[in-house]
């Protein structure tokens, strides 16, 4: 059987909110090392990769590898019934066709069990090669969210450029143009407010803002976001999940024909 008890249940709620509009159905791959998920959006432009390590759970048991086929909208409906401070336990039998979500209130005076039907999903896993990215930028996740949202009101695509000075986001549309530059800034008091640029070579790529906007639904998971870019490769937008792993989004660039 599989069982995972997560003291900070809100993390799972946040993960679902971050991906439920991008991916419809996906397998949660459970093994003794944790829970992993990889799924493309329906247009096959973006890829989501989630890792929740066993060590981040208060209790974790997985006797044999299981692929739990889940409709994310339905799982989101179930998790919305958990309080933000609740402990969430996931349970599934090896041969079962359901998953149980148990919610425990912080002072243990309310215990809820929700059972959800699983589905059979043929999932195709893509191999993501280890890449030495030309540019890696870490910045406040709320700032990234703000920039992407602001640019979305002006254009459909953004050019993201990184030089040793910083990262720039540009767009254009019927009403005009916009360009935002965030400079490397390591002299701020709080580490989470820093913007750091690690660069081997300047890089500039074009992406659909609609997807970037969707990724920023993960902002609540982490105060910082890391953007990794290389010429003619998908951008990686990574939100680290404290003590547990990460939620990464890969987005294919738009490329000049």
């Amino acid at each position: 059987m599989f069982e995972g008890r997560l003291l900070q249940g809100s993390l799972l709620k946040k993960v679902l909110e971050a991906i439920k509009d991008l991916v419809t159905d996906t397998n949660f791959d459970c093994s003794e090392t944790g829970i992993a998920l990889q799924a493309m959006d329906s247009s096959h432009v973006a890829l989501v990769s989630l890792l929740l390590k066993d060590t981040g759970f208060d209790h974790f048991r997985c006797d044999r590898n299981l692929a739990l086929g889940i409709n994310l909208q339905n799982m989101s409906k179930m998790l919305k019934c958990a309080g933000n401070d609740d402990i969430i336990t996931l349970k599934a039998e090896d041969e079962g066709d359901t998953i149980t979500f148990m919610f425990e209130s912080p002072n243990q005076d309310k215990i809820s069990d929700f059972e959800m039907k699983l589905m059979d999903i043929d999932s195709e896993h893509l191999g993501i090669p280890d890449t030495d990215y030309q540019a890696i930028v870490t910045m406040p996740s709320a700032e990234f969210q703000r920039i992407v949202r602001d640019l979305s009101s002006i254009g459909d695509t953004a050019v993201i450029g990184v030089t040793k000075e910083g990262i720039s986001f540009s767009t254009g549309g019927d009403i005009g143009k916009a360009n935002i530059v965030c400079r490397q800034n390591t002299n701020v008091d709080k580490e989470e407010d820093q913007t750091t640029v690690e660069i081997h070579e300047p890089v500039s790529l074009t992406f659909a803002l609609r997807y970037l906007n969707s990724f920023t639904k993960a902002t609540a998971l982490s105060p910082q976001v890391t953007l990794s870019l290389s010429k003619e490769l998908p951008i990686v937008v990574e939100y680290k999940i404290e003590k547990m792993g990460f939620l990464r989004f890969y987005l294919a660039p738009k490329i000049e024909e």
Partner: peptide
């Protein structure tokens, strides 16, 4: 013009 590439043109099936 620019065209949107698909993600599986970069990452091959495992």
């Amino acid at each position: 013009g620019v065209s949107q590439r698909s993600i599986n043109s970069f990452f091959a099936p495992k």
